[in-house]
Amino acid sequence: MTDFFTGTIVISMLTATMRIATPLLLAALGELVVERAGVLNLGLESMMLLACFAAFIVTLVSGSQAAGLAAAVATGLVIAALFGFMTITLRTEQFVTGLAINLLASGLTLYAFRAYQIVSGKESPIITLLPNLSLPLLADLPGLGEIFFQHNLLTYLAFGLTPLLWAFLYRTRYGLELRFAGENPATLDTRGLSVAWRRYLAVLFGGAMAGLAGAFISLGSSVRFVPEMTAGRGWLAIVIVIAGNWLPQRVLLAALVFAFMNAFQLQAQALGLNLPYQLLLALPYAVAVLAMMLGRANSRAPTALGIPYQRP
């Protein structure tokens, strides 16, 4: 327990929190924008998985991490375009379409990975991870430097995007229009502004963010690719949007809390706590249900969430 008092465990736990929060925050911010525009994308989990694989395989084959990142974003965009075409243009049921996308993308990932293993003859190839960038001066701060300022590009991007996204949604005309697509699309339509167009852009943004989240899971945290390596983080991102009551600042908070619970679970043994680890893993989901039970009075859920827009 002396480690605890010298702060080593606390610092490594908080550093891990930032790292674990990154993909959750990236995906949740994307989903937040999508849902604000009135579209529920339940295909997030597998969009991330396929993007994760794309980042891995392209980095492996081309040797360029930039190409890997680009491939992940492109993959997210392609799946999002398919999802958008189905739900916005064809107006299919959003959550069923999301589930279908989930099966399709996870099946494709597994198939492509196995096919690669067979064709290349490599059982478990490895890539180099994104380097950690220490911010000048800030990284040298005792404790805080390690926790906040020695991460890779994607972590800074995720945390930097949060205030920008808030400003976009609440302080710009485009953000207002986008929120109207999710609250009262008919108003937007009567003003001659296209609901479909705004929803498409939101869904594509969500796809790109899911792509980055997937890229982090491979390039940012694991040298190997493991099937199903997103491990429910896409679903957790959807929960984070709900627990965050569809507000960017609360989404940030929710992502940090869920990430901390996970980091705590990793360190619980070192702290000498004898809790079953499954309890800590299940906790975010139980907390989310509780949050929904208590939060219905002041829910900021977009009114038209999940409802395809049809001109009356």
Binding site: A100, N102, L103, G107, T109, L110
Partner: peptide, 8 residues
Amino acid sequence: AIVFATQG
């Protein structure tokens, strides 16, 4: 694994 993609 292709069958899951096919189902989708």
